[in-house]
Simulated scan of single mutants.
Amino acid sequence: MPALTAPAKRLHAAWLASHAEWGPGLHEDGFGLLPEDDVESPAGFEAWLERLAADSARCTYRWITEGELVLGGIALRHEGNNSVDRAGHIGYGIRPSARGRGLGTWALGQMVEEARRDGMDRVLLVCAVGNFASAATIERQGGVRERCRNSGADKVWRYWISLGQPAEGD
Rank of each mutant, 00 (worst) to 15 (best):
L16H: 05
E21L: 13
A8S: 08
S41G: 13
L124P: 01
E114G: 03
M120R: 14
T137A: 13
G93K: 15
E68K: 15
Y61E: 06
A133G: 11
L71M: 11
D38I: 10
R77S: 02
G143N: 01
G88M: 10
R10S: 00
F31L: 13
G104K: 02
W160S: 09
F132L: 15
F45I: 13
L76F: 11
L11E: 00
L69T: 15
S97Q: 14
G104C: 10
D170K: 12
R158H: 06
W63L: 09
D29S: 12
L16Y: 00
I90S: 11
R51W: 04
D118M: 15
A47H: 12
D55G: 02
G143P: 07
A57N: 03
D55V: 10
H27Y: 00
Y159F: 12
V123M: 08
K155D: 03
A133H: 10
I74S: 05
R147S: 07
R145M: 08
A54R: 05
L26G: 06
I94P: 04
R117S: 04
G130C: 00
P166E: 09
D118E: 12
E66D: 05
G152F: 09
G80K: 12
E146M: 14
Q141Y: 03
R116W: 02
M111L: 10
N81H: 04
L52H: 04
W48Y: 14
N81P: 01
L124Y: 03
V126M: 11
R158E: 08
A128Y: 05
L71S: 03
D29L: 15
L49I: 14
R86L: 04
G143I: 01
L103A: 08
